[in-house]
């Protein structure tokens, strides 16, 4: 069972009119792993996730989610997958408890009241259980949504930006919970724009304009990129950024706080471009960060 794939799709494609939103995406996630799904806005993450849980019909491609065909067995997938939408999609005119009650009933769960009570307790929502969902703050809404999509004990969680707008402490708790769940065998695919969250994942998939452009562990992704990054430190590094941008071999220049990251693929050209500044600034080659890799991929595509 260990090598069984919770998600196994090939060539998943979705068009909206003439726009190719998802372009032949392959994803294979082994059971029990936590995968991060990254990509800039509009790159096709939500669309892909919707195809995975049977909410959108792929124009092309096929595959399975927890063993069920994404094209023909959408109903079985719905029973066994927990999907948390990007936009809050519970009923704002129902209370927290009423929302969970509804979910428990729709999934025909036994011991409904007990389960709902346990979930409320686990999420620290008991005190707010009678509050209308629409009156919760953003972070509490997310927490409720997560609880609701886990109530039926799914085998696979598809989470679409579950931590957008959530405070750091709540995010930390959320990730602890994800890891606990994955230790119990739950598979998770989570889309996110946070790099620190990407680093908490077993593997990541990066999608750009509907195509998967890189995947693997964080270290693999960085290695595969072949990117070379020099970090420039010193006073007034800002002044040299614009000049460096136009040098040959410099693919992108970005600020990370007070330091400048200068990246490219041609080490020789990069060193030449930086030579005039070696006196004034402290310049060292460092391992590129995940963010460096993503920014470079995005700039290269633009």
């Amino acid at each position: 069972m260990a090598e069984a794939l919770a998600i196994d799709v090939h060539g998943l494609t979705k068009r909206f009119g003439s726009k190719l939103a998802v372009d032949h995406v392959d994803i294979a996630v082994p059971q029990g792993e936590v995968w991060g799904f990254l990509g800039p806005n509009g790159s096709g993450k939500t669309t892909t996730i919707r195809m995975l849980c049977g909410l959108l019909r792929p124009d092309d491609g096929n595959g399975t989610c927890i063993g069920y065909d994404v094209r023909t067995e959408a109903e079985a997938i719905k029973r066994n997958v927990g999907y948390m939408t990007q936009r809050f999609s519970f009923w704002e005119d129902l209370s927290v408890k009423e929302n969970l009650d509804f979910v428990a009933r729709v999934y025909e769960l036994d011991n409904r009241e007990q389960r709902v009570a346990k979930m409320l307790d686990r999420l620290g929502l008991e005190k707010r259980q009678d509050q209308l969902a629409g009156e919760l703050s953003g972070g509490w809404k997310q927490r409720m949504a997560l609880g609701a999509c886990m109530l039926h004990e799914p085998k696979l969680l598809l989470l679409d930006e579950p931590t957008a707008g959530v405070d750091p402490e709540a995010r930390r708790q959320f990730w602890e919970q994800i890891h606990t769940l994955s230790e119990r065998g739950l598979t998770v695919l989570v889309s996110t724009h946070y790099m620190d969250e990407a680093e908490r994942c077993d593997r990541i998939v990066y999608i750009l304009n509907g195509k998967v452009v890189t995947r693997g562990t964080v270290a693999e992704v960085i290695k595969q990129s072949g990117l070379i990054t020099f970090v420039v430190r010193g006073d007034n590094v800002r002044h040299i950024a614009d000049k460096l941008r136009h040098e040959r071999g410099v693919e992108y220049v970005a600020f990370f706080g007070a330091v400048l990251h200068v990246s490219g693929h041609d080490r020789h050209a990069l060193e030449q471009a930086l030579t005039p500044y070696r006196q004034q600034f402290q310049i060292e080659e460092e391992q590129p960060s995940l963010e460096d890799v993503f920014i470079q991929l995005q700039e290269a595509a633009a």
Partner: peptide
């Protein structure tokens, strides 16, 4: 229009 349709569809009703 409220966005809850997606959730309703994702459930087994």
């Amino acid at each position: 229009e409220r966005g809850t349709y997606e959730n309703l569809l994702a459930m087994p009703a």
